[in-house]
Amino acid sequence: MNRHEKLMELPTQRQPVKFYQTGTFTVGNRLLPENLRSVQADIGRTNSLNSGHRACQGCGEALGARYAIDAAMRATDNQLVAVNATGCLEVFSTPYPETSWQIPWIHSLFGNAAAVASGVAAAQRVRGRPHVRVVAQGGDGGTTDIGFGCLSGMFERNDDVLYICYDNEAYMNTGVQRSSATPPGARTATTPALGREPGNVSGTGKNVPLIAMAHRIPYVATASVANLHDLELKVTTAMEFHGARYIHIHVPCPLGWGSLPADTIRIARLAVESGLFPLFEARDGHVSARTPIRRKVAVDEYLKLQKRFAHLFASPAGRERIALIQATADRNIEEFGLLEDEATRG
């Protein structure tokens, strides 16, 4: 039984002996065997992204980056190099000459992280160190807009890189400008809540995980800072493969979303539970697993905690757009089968 299967056994109501109070919902759990606790519960975790970084209070990206890179460090026995695109993560972690990174880390340009990572991976191969693995990481701007060409090239060549996108749905460190990952209706500096259709356009969107799948790369997954065990499982699984891999992590941004810093994980959880951010895995271009919704909520629950959507609640036209957002969530639930019984997972 691998770790994935073991995790899926917990928690269960049918076998009382296997009831563990909080199961794997919490970060750790003193009642669980050590090997079933998360990397983040480990007193000796790497803390790849160290204290003293300049991320805002309650930053979801700082949290997601530590979750993901710590898990990748454990999975590779600490033989890991990270390549970073420009963005919040790069800016807040490495103001010259300080760094928060406790792993080998390189930054080049905004748009070329995937290409640089391909090069680092090639260099490791040439130097006879195939056990040194490469992770590229960036925000949604550096991934879905500016770095998109390089990313697609890395996928198409099937270079041996895990690319992680921390999606906070806009260009945050430059002052909250919209990106191709900004959701419909959201207010940003460049999509103000003005006019007939306030906020971001209700367009057709750009779903990079699905685009990654269209490249038929070996592994694609989505994850959320609200589900740590699921996130760590996906990073760990990704490191079992060689070739191009992609993980898209949903990371709330209190500054850009107009939410309370204390609500970061709550908001990420509501995005998952409403169906707006489906959690799934895909192998060789096909969805192979999805993480079911535990307690379904309406999208209102998610939207109303964020000032960037406040205008939608202020007018009948806004209400209509909320209905569209709800329809998107419902379609996700339908398409990915997010309400199936947990037992059918995998």
Binding site: T26, G28, L228
Partner: peptide, 20 residues
């Protein structure tokens, strides 16, 4: 009850785990 949540969810690693 030592679920490690505070230790895990801090974006700034500013929770110190003291052990079981």
């Amino acid at each position: 009850f030592e679920c490690d949540n505070c230790y895990g969810v801090c974006p700034d690693n500013s929770v110190i785990k003291l052990g079981p």
